[in-house]
Design a protein around this nucleic acid. Structure first.
Lengths: 147, 147
DNA sequence: CTATGACTTCGAGTGCGCTCTAAGTCAAGC
DNA sequence: GCTTGACTTAGAGCGCACTCGAAGTCATAG
C-alpha cells in the first residue's frame, strides 16, 4: 500500500545519481532497502526522507565516515539516541565555526573587490585624462601591489 | 634590504606546508619566487601576502584551476584588472549562495537535533515512570521514524 | 673536516567522494 | 518472440588537492 519507487525514480526525487545511491548502500549508509522479487531496489518514502537527511549532513560538510558511524548508532536502537544527538550537536557547532569563518572571508573578499574596482577606476581615469602614454606609465607602480 | 625568508619560515608564517608552497609554485600559482645563489627560494613579504590571498580564495571554495586562471590574468598586467574584478565578484556571489544554503541547512539541523533531544527526554521519562518493560515497549514505535 | 638538517627536483602516492565500466538479468511494449 | 531499457553486481577509474619519498645539494655549527 505504501508507495515505493525504483532506484531511478529515487535518484530523480533526491537529486542523487543511481550510482551514488548504490554507493551509499554498500558503504553502510542505507542498510536496508527493500527488494522486489527480481532483486531490484524499492525505495519507500522514508528511504527518500533518509536520503535527504544524508544529503543534509553531506552538504554541511560531515565526512562520510562519520555519517556511517551515525547510521551504525541508529541500528543500535534507542540506547544510542543520546550519542546521536551529541554527534549532531558537535557537527552543528563545527558548522557554526565554518559559517563564521566564511563571514570573515567574505569581508576580506569584499575588500579585495573594492581595491580592484578602485584600480579599475584609476586606470580608466588615467587613460581618459592623459592618453595612452599615461596608461602605460600607471602599469608599473600599482602592479607591484598585486595582492 | 627588504626582509625575505626561507620556504620553511614561509610555511610557518602562512600555515601552509613547504610541500604545498612548492606545489602552488609548480602549478603556476606563484610564478616568481626569488632564489638565493644556491637555488633556494626566498619569500618576500608580498609573496607571503599573496599566499594569504590564495588561502582566502581556497578557503572560500575557489577551485585551484580558477585560481591559476586568476594568476594568469594578473600576469597580463593592468589590462586584465576588470576581468579579475569580475572573477572575484562572481566568486563572491557563489560564496553568498553557499552561505545562504548553509543557513538553511543549519535550521534543518537544529530541527533534527530538537527532535533527537525530544526523543531522549521521552525515553528517559518512560524508563523512569514505568520501569524497564516500558522502555522496551517504546523501542518500537518511535524507531520507525528514524530520519 | 664533518655532521646535521633545511633545502632542491621529479614523480609517485594518498584520501575523499564519487563515477563509471563490463557483463549480465529481467519486465514490459510491440 | 524480440527489443528496449532500466536494473543488477564487482571492481576499476577519476578529479581534486595535496602529500610524500628518494636521491641529491649546500650552509652553518661544532
Amino acid at each position: 500500500m505504501t508507495p515505493t519507487c525504483s532506484i531511478g525514480e529515487a535518484a530523480k526525487a533526491t537529486g542523487m545519481t543511481t550510482h551514488t545511491l548504490r554507493y551509499y548502500e554498500r558503504i553502510g549508509l542505507m542498510p536496508s532497502i527493500d527488494r522486489e522479487a527480481a532483486g531490484r531496489r524499492r525505495y519507500s518514502q522514508s528511504d527518500l526522507d533518509f536520503v535527504g537527511f544524508l544529503a543534509l549532513l553531506r552538504k554541511t560538510g560531515m565526512p562520510i565516515r562519520e555519517m556511517v558511524e551515525f547510521v551504525r548508532l541508529m541500528q543500535q536502537g534507542d540506547g544510542s539516541v543520546a550519542d546521536r544527538a551529541t554527534m549532531l550537536e558537535r557537527h552543528r557547532s563545527q558548522l557554526l565555526v565554518e559559517m563564521d569563518e566564511l563571514g570573515r572571508f567574505m569581508a576580506a573578499l569584499d575588500a579585495k573587490i573594492a581595491f580592484y574596482r578602485g584600480r579599475e577606476r584609476e586606470l580608466r581615469h588615467a587613460s581618459e585624462s592623459a592618453g595612452v602614454e599615461a596608461e602605460a606609465r600607471t602599469s608599473d607602480a600599482p602592479a607591484t601591489t598585486p595582492v
